[in-house]
C-alpha cells in the first residue's frame, strides 16, 4: 500500500465518531488534524508532507530516530514553528497561523525536551503560572475589588494543590526549581502543564534521562492524567517499551517523513519501521 493510499484509509477512519478501548477508555472524534505539513529550515527539510490526526481522549505517540523531526512536529502544533505548507485543523476548523501564547490560550499545554521552567521560582510558583490564563480579573479589580479577585485566587490555588498532590510533589512545594534534580524538574514541568487544564497536552520526551523507577512513575502519571482529567495527550518518546504500553496509536517519523501510523502492534510489525530502527540504508 502506498503512503497516499494509506492516508486515504486513515482519513476515512478518522471520520468515525470514536470507540471504546480494550481497557474501557473512551476515544472520541478527531480533535487535532495535521494536513500535509512541510517544514523547512533553510535547506533542511525537517518535516516532509506529513498528515496525521489526534483523537479526543487518546494517547498518541510520535516516535522515530534522532533528528527525524518529532520535536519540530510538536513545535508546529504548539505554534513555536510555522510550516511552509500544510494546514492545522483544531476542533473542526482550520487554524490560522498562531503564536505560541495564543495556542496555549486555546487549551494546548506542553513540556519541552530541554525542560523550560522558571528556575528562579519555587515549585509552587512555577505550577501557579500554569493558571495565568484562568486569572480573569483585571488590575483594577485586583486592586479595588478584592472579593472577586480573592475567590479566583483561592480557586486557582486549590486547583494547583490538587495537581501537586496528584504528581506527588508536596514535599518540594516551596523548593526553588533550580535546586531540583533532573527527574523532579520533568515532573514539575508536567505539573505546570496540567495546571492549565489543557484539552491537549504535548509532551516532548517526558522520560528522557530517567531511571527505570522514575519512568514507571512518569508513565503512571501520564496514564492517570489521561484517565482522570480526560486529557488528550501527544507524546514523543524513545523508550519503545514505554511507548507500546502507554499509547493508543503511534506515528513513526524518519528523516522528516511519516513511515508508519497505527496501533502499537501494527507499527511494531511494519517493515519500514523495523528498517528505520535497524538502520537499513536509505535509498
Amino acid at each position: 500500500m502506498s503512503l497516499a493510499e494509506q492516508y486515504v484509509m486513515d482519513t476515512e477512519m478518522d471520520r468515525s465518531e470514536g470507540h471504546i478501548t480494550e481497557d474501557g477508555r473512551k476515544i472520541g472524534a478527531v480533535m487535532m488534524e495535521m494536513r500535509n505539513i512541510t517544514l523547512k529550515f533553510g535547506g533542511v527539510v525537517a518535516i516532509k508532507d506529513i498528515s496525521f490526526d489526534i483523537r479526543q481522549g487518546e494517547i498518541r505517540a510520535i516516535i522515530g530516530p534522532n533528528g527525524a523531526g518529532k520535536s519540530s512536529m510538536l513545535n508546529v502544533i504548539s505554534g513555536f514553528y510555522h510550516p511552509q505548507e500544510g494546514e492545522v485543523w483544531y476542533n473542526g476548523s482550520r487554524r490560522a497561523p498562531m503564536r505560541p501564547y495564543q495556542v496555549a490560550r486555546q487549551g494546548i499545554a506542553r513540556t519541552f525536551q530541554n525542560i523550560a521552567l522558571f528556575e528562579g521560582m519555587t515549585v509552587l510558583d512555577n505550577v501557579m503560572t500554569g493558571r495565568l490564563n484562568f486569572m480573569k480579573t483585571n488590575l483594577f479589580q485586583q486592586a479595588f475589588w478584592r472579593g472577586k479577585a480573592e475567590r479566583e485566587e483561592v480557586h486557582n490555588r486549590e486547583f494547583v494543590e490538587k495537581i501537586i498532590d496528584f504528581l506527588e510533589i508536596q514535599a518540594i512545594r516551596k523548593t526553588p526549581v533550580s535546586r531540583l534534580p533532573y527527574g523532579l524538574k520533568k515532573r514539575v514541568e508536567l505539573a505546570r502543564a496540567l495546571a492549565a487544564e489543557p484539552h491537549l497536552l504535548l509532551l516532548d520526551e517526558p522520560m528522557a534521562g530517567m531511571n527505570v523507577e522514575e519512568k514507571e512513575d512518569m508513565s503512571r502519571f501520564i496514564l492517570n492524567a489521561n484517565d482522570e482529567f480526560g486529557t488528550t495527550i501527544a507524546l514523543i518518546e524513545h523508550d519503545m517499551g514505554v511507548v507500546m504500553d502507554l499509547s493508543d496509536r503511534v506515528v513513526v517519523m524518519d528523516y522528516g517523513k511519516k513511515i508508519g501510523d497505527g496501533t502499537p502492534d501494527e507499527v511494531r510489525n511494519n517493515q519500514a519501521v523495523i528498517d528505520a530502527y535497524l538502520g537499513v540504508a536509505h535509498d
Binding site: 504548539s78 499545554a109 521552567l117 522558571f118 528562579g120 521560582m121 501557579m128
Partner: peptide, 18 residues
C-alpha cells in the same frame, strides 16, 4: 507574575500563554 515569568524564561512563558 507574568512579568516575572518572562524575566525568567521566554520559552516557558510562551508555553503558559503569556
Amino acid at each position: 507574575r507574568a512579568l516575572r515569568a518572562v524575566a525568567d524564561d521566554h520559552q516557558a512563558a510562551l508555553s503558559v500563554g503569556i
